[in-house]
Amino acid sequence: MKLRSPHLLGIEFLEPEEITAILDAAETFAEISTREIKKVPTLRGKTVVNFFVEPSTRTRSSFELAEKRLSADSLNFSTSTSSLVKGETLLDTARNLEAMAPDFIVIRHSEPGAPHFLARHCRSSVINAGDGAHEHPTQALLDAFTMRRRGRRFPGLRVAIVGDILHSRVARSNVLLLTRMGADVTVCGPPTLLPRGIERLGCRATHRMEEAIEGADVVMMLRVQLERMRAGFFPTLREYARLFGLDGARLRLAAPDALVMHPGPINRGVEIMGDVADGAASVILEQVTNGVAVRMAVLYLLAGGAERETAA
């Protein structure tokens, strides 16, 4: 299986078969990650630039590890070291990156569409590692992979995504991916944090957490940021936690074997209570582990998948 596009800009452009192919490939790489020697030569001689204009230790580390395990040469190009702070435009930066002739550029940026911009101006394969409130495709893929590894099948799977939907790329990519795979998705948050017309992406929307969680097979909590309170989206973190925090009592409304997920980093006591985050239903750390395998799969398939492997 080969992906149709040389880039992974968003779930928006992926067909269900491509999503399945990525998840299947990730199974192989998850197995490799349990071996004594966790390295394969798949991307030997390939260069990956991790271009992170917005700080993200977790996603970057996950990509870095995926690249190292595939034997790629990787280079971190982050805000503090780049000249974006000195007023260089993204176009200039793109040209500079292009001059290094990387095979892949992994980009994290605060502006929606920045990866698409890069893809238009560079020959490299561009992987979107999060663009503003738009998409975070590898997160949605690793979330789906985590559900699948836990034996969940997507058709009819009831998933509740709770929190700041308005500003969340994780929510958008997950809604796109899960609905495309046949899951039944409900997003939930205060009316100020639910974007208008979100239902048109194929999910349900509610302001009542109990309604969202009731009978859910997966409860995905989103991180809420203090700056949203300052911008007036909700009065206080305390009140937010009271209305939209996941505690044990609320979790009992979900299906008995429900999974609790969170893209991290978590705010204990705000969107998720500590005992739930650490409880039996939580797969939050598995998400982190699976992230590496999924990112390996994405790099592998974008590099040409099996075709390239036989050629090498």
Binding site: G113, H134, E135, P195, R196, G197, R200, L201
Partner: peptide, 8 residues
């Protein structure tokens, strides 16, 4: 719909 879809 468009702003919602594009995260703008």
């Amino acid at each position: 719909d468009v702003s919602t879809r594009m995260g703008l």
